[in-house]
Amino acid sequence: MFIAETATLSFMRKEQTELFESTIVTYRQSLARIVATYEMRPDLQQELHQEILLAIWKALPGFRGESGLHTFVYRVAHNQAMNHLSRDSKIPPHESLDDPLESTTGCPLLLAMNSQKMSIMFKAMHKLPVIQRQILTLALEGLSYQEIAQVTGLNDNNVGVRLNRAKKALKEILDQNRQEQDNVR
């Protein structure tokens, strides 16, 4: 009985490891984008990245395939990121959208962001409320309304309304930044 249980556990562990490795290979860029969306400070980015990986590792045995793996991974990652934000007592300093993105230069896990446009985009995302940021990120990752609803626990219609508002808010921030840049020139 004990040997059978040990063998089953070892098999499950191997399966978990394989699933985890393939998940990391498939979603590593998406996870990095989620980290950069929620956290700008390099040391805390590394911390959040590890927290997310650990949460995925722990949650994978509970994945029953009721939803897609990508929905499951995003759900775990976003929840962990929210947990990180709620625990963080420090308030990040206010930065202009034109300042270089600190995260991509100092974090050992993330490469320097070579596109200025994307750097501005990440900074603009940080100015949005957390829930809008979450919905926008999920939509940008290509999730459907239904999948976003599964991740957030909202209904499909509400996701649509919120996504439109988030897009509008992001556009306003980006337009404002563009205007400020034009004024400087």
Binding site: I24, R28, Q29, A32, L111, L140
Partner: peptide, 17 residues
Amino acid sequence: SEWQSCKIAKVDSTKAL
């Protein structure tokens, strides 16, 4: 499309594991 093609992670799965 720009968002999804933005590659910023430098971790590999072995290191992550």
